[in-house]
Amino acid sequence: MQTKDRYIQQFDETQEMALTTKNLHIYYGDFEAISEADLQIPRFKITALIGASGSGKSTFLRSLNRMNDNVADVKGEIWYRDLNLNSKEIDVYAMRRQIGMVFQRPNPFPKSIYENITFALERHGITDKKELAERVETSLKQAALWEEVKDKLNQSALALSGGQAQRLCIARAIALQPDILLLDEPASALDPISTAQLEETLVNLKQHYTIVIVTHNLPQAARISDYTAHFSQGKVIEFNNTKETFTDPKVKLTNDYISGDFG
C-alpha cells in the first residue's frame, strides 16, 4: 500500500476550513526550513503535526499566526476567512487574538492567576469587571483548571505546578475567545498525569475551537487528533485522517516514522 511519495487527502466543498496554506516557503537566512506545505486545516477539529526533529513542523506552526515575523522569512499564502494572513494589511495583534498559541514550556506571567487571564483581555479593550470575572471563570472551566484554583485566584501563577501552569496558559488563550488554537508541543514538559489531563481538556475544547497541535508523542496524536500531517525535511508528505494515517499510512516514510524505524 505504501507506494506513494506523497499523499494529501482532499476535502470536498462542504467541509469548512479554518486555515489553508498555499505555496508556503520559510527560510532561516539561506536555509529553507519549509519548502512544500500546502495544508487545509478543517474547522472544529484537532489537527496534529508530527515528524522528526528539524522536519519544520514547529516552524510551520509558528508561521501560521506570524510569530516568526522577525525570526524567519515567510513566503506564500496563509488563508483565513478569505484573508491572506501573510500580507502587510494584516494587523497581527488583532489576528493573534483570533489565532492564539500555547508553547512548549508553560509561561505564565509573574502575576496572579486572575491577572494572567485578564491581562490580555484588558489590553484588547475588555474592562468591564463583571465580564472579566465571567471570562476568567469560563476559560478556567474550559481548561479544566477551575476546581483547582478557584479559591486562590489572587495567588501568584508561578506557584502552580507545570501541568496547572500549562492549562492556565490555555485558559488565558481561550479567554480571548479565539477561532484557532495553535499548540507547540504543549505536553512535552509535563508528567504523564498532567499530560492525560491536558489531552482530555483539548478534546473537550474542539467543540468551540479549531486546534492545531505539534507533538512528538505519536500515541498522543493518535489519541486526540482528527487529522494528522506528517512533516519530513520541510515538506508535508502525508496528510490524512488520523485513523488512516496510523493504521494504513500511504507513504513509506510515514510508516517508517510511526513504526519507529525513523527519527
Binding site: 510569530m67 488583532a94 489576528m95 487574538r97 498559541m101 509561561n107 509573574p110 489590553r123
Partner: peptide, 27 residues
C-alpha cells in the same frame, strides 16, 4: 528575563511594547 514571557504576550495579541512595559519590565 526569559523569551518565553515575550512570546506569551505576543501570542495573546498584545503589542511588544506592552508586553515589555507591563510584563518584562516588572519582572
Amino acid at each position: 528575563i526569559s523569551n518565553d514571557q515575550r512570546n506569551g504576550g505576543l501570542a495573546l495579541g498584545i503589542s511588544k511594547w506592552e508586553t515589555v512595559t507591563k510584563i518584562i519590565l516588572p519582572a
